[in-house]
Amino acid sequence: CRLLGTGRLLGDLMDRIPEFIPRLADDTQLSQVRDLEPATARLIGLLDSREDPDAKVGTIRRFIRRRKLRIAARDVLGEADTETTLRSLSDTADAAVIGALHALTDGRPDAFGVVAMGKWGGREMSYGSDIDLIYVYDDDQDRERAFELATGLGRLLSEPSRHGEGLHLDSALRPEGKSGPLARSLDSYRRYYHEWAQPWEFLALVKARPAAGDPGLLHGFAEVLEPVLWKAKLPEPLVWEIRRIKARMESERIGPGEDPDYHLKLGPGGLTDVEFVAQLLQLRHGGRAPDLRVTSTLEALDRLAEAEILGEHDHRALRDAYEFCTRVRLRLHLQKGRASDSLPTDPKDVARLAASLGFDRTGELREQYRRLTRRARRSFERLFYESGGR
C-alpha cells in the first residue's frame, strides 16, 4: 500500500510489469538493484539470446522499467539515500545504452563512442531525465557507420514502440546544437572546441563522461577536452560570461505562474545555483588540481572541500540544499508521474508530499526548503558573484 500510494509513476510501472505484483509483499526482493557491471552483463546475455530485432527492443525497454520500479521501491521504502538513487538511475541508462550498442554492433563498437552529458554525465539522473549525449567516431571513413549507429540507438531506446517507453535521447548539447551534424570525428571535435567553443559549452563539458563504445576512442575524446577545460588560469572574460549566463537564466527561464521562491531547480539556492558554483570552481582550480575533474555535483563539492577551496560552512550549505531539492524533486516525480520543478501550491498535494518525505507537519516542508536554500544562496552569491571562487 505504501508503494502504490506514493503516486502515479509506481502504479504505471506496475501496470506494465504485472509479474512484479506477487513480490509486493516482500520489500527486500522488490527493491534489490544490481550494480552497473552485473546489470549490464545480465542485459547483454538476454539480448544475445534473442534473434528478432523487435524482441531486442522489448528486452531493453523491460529492463529499463524493471530497474526503475526497483529503484523507486527502494527509494520510497527508505533503503537508499538520494545519491544512491541518482547513481542507480544513471547506471540504468549506462547499461541500456551499452546493451543497445552491443546489439547493433554484435559486440564490436569499434571507432564509435557515446559520451554522456548533463545529468546522465554527472550520474545524477532523476526518474524522467532525458539522456543527454554526444556521438564521436574515429575518422572520416567511419562517418557513415557512426550515423547509422546513432540512428539505431534512437530506434532501440527512444522511438515509439508497442513495448512501451524507453529513454529519450537528446543530442542538443553537441557542437552547433541541432543545426550541427549528429556525430563528429575526433579531429572535428578537437578543432571545434579549441577554436569555436561557446562559454556555455565549457560548463556542459565539465559533465562529459565516456559511457559506451570504443574505449580507445573515448580515451582520445577525454584527451581532446583536457587542454580545453583544465587551464592553469581561467580567463576572466570567460568567468564574466558564465556569470551573465546564470543571471540571464534567473530572469528568463522560470515560467509564468511559477513561484521562483519555491522553484527546486531555478529558485534562489536551488539546484542550478549549486551546479553553477561547483562548475565554476572546478574550472577555476581544476587545471592545477586534477582531483577536481569529476562530473558529479555532489562529488565535486566534496573534492572542493577536501582541497580547502570550499570552507566547511559553504560545503555543508550547498550540499544540504542540493540533496534536499533533489530528494523532493524525485518524490514529486513519483507522485505526479512526470517531472516537476516547483513545490506544489495545492494544500492537498503539499500535505501528501510532506507526509511522503517524513514531515509531521505540512509547514515543515516549506520551512526546511526556505532554511536550506537561503543558506545555499548566501554561499552561492559570495562564491560565484563576489569572489568568483577565491
Rank of each mutant, 00 (worst) to 15 (best):
G128H: 15
K207C: 06
S296W: 03
R8L: 15
D273Y: 06
P227V: 13
P18L: 09
E275S: 12
L4E: 15
P18C: 11
I98D: 08
P18W: 08
G177C: 09
G389N: 03
D138A: 13
L264V: 01
Q279G: 05
L218K: 11
G107Q: 02
G122T: 06
V33Q: 06
E148M: 13
A307P: 00
Y137P: 03
R248W: 09
D138Q: 14
D142I: 13
T362I: 08
L234M: 02
D360I: 03
L357R: 06
A93R: 07
P256M: 12
G358K: 05
L86D: 09
K56E: 08
I98S: 07
P38F: 02
D130W: 04
R61K: 10
R42L: 12
S296Y: 02
G164D: 10
D170R: 06
R371E: 11
P160F: 04
A72T: 11
A354H: 09
L283D: 04
Q368S: 08
C1W: 10
E83H: 13
E226V: 03
G118E: 09
A208E: 05
E252S: 07
L149F: 11
G220H: 05
A354I: 01
T326Q: 13
R67P: 01
R42F: 13
G154K: 12
A212Q: 02
A321P: 01
I98C: 12
D346N: 11
L357H: 01
P109V: 00
A80Q: 06
K233L: 00
K231N: 01
E381G: 11
E258I: 10
D35S: 14
I98Y: 03
